[in-house]
Every structure is written in C-alpha cells, then in structure tokens.
Amino acid sequence: MTALLGQAALWVAAFGLISAVCAAIHLRQVQPVVALLADFLLAAGLIRLAGEPSWDSLALAASTGAVRLLLGAALRHRASGIGARRGGGGGGGSG
C-alpha cells in the first residue's frame, strides 16, 4: 500500500505542476500560482504521510506545511497591500 500511496503522491505533484502552468497562462500572475502549487505539494505530502509513518516523511510533511503557510500569509499580505494601494480594486497584483 505504501508503494501505491507513493505513486499517488507523485501523480498529485505532477498534477500540481501542470495545473500551475495552466493557471499561470490563464492568470498571468505569480502569487496565486505559487500558492496553488504549494497546495498541491501539501496534498502530495499528506498522501505520503498516510502510508508508513516515519520521522523522515513526518519532517517532510511538516516543512511543506510550514513553507506553505508562510508563503500563503506573505503573499496574502502583499496582495492586500497592493489592493489597498490601488484603492481596494483588485485582489492581487502581478508579480
């Protein structure tokens, strides 16, 4: 089952990369795309964590989650700053 979960995690990471490229082409913005990629990578880490729990996979999932949280908070902070500077018009700015 661990091998199956590892394969699933790989697929999810690949899906995330392709989705991020699609979203980048569609949106032409950097911040939301990075947040989306972090979401998919977190999903991959969570799937891998469901298999055989080891300290390695634990550390991996924890660091992915922490990076993702930091990125999300920083990008949202920056986006809201840009939105406020523009008079509250847009939700995000182009990177």
Binding site: A8, W11, V12, F15, G16, I18, S19, F40, A43, A44, L46, I47
Partner: peptide
C-alpha cells in the same frame, strides 16, 4: 485528497 487533486487538475 487524491480525488480532490484530480478534480482540481
């Protein structure tokens, strides 16, 4: 989680 990822993809 996998189904959600496939759906979002």
């Amino acid at each position: 989680i996998f189904i959600g990822a496939v759906w979002a993809f």
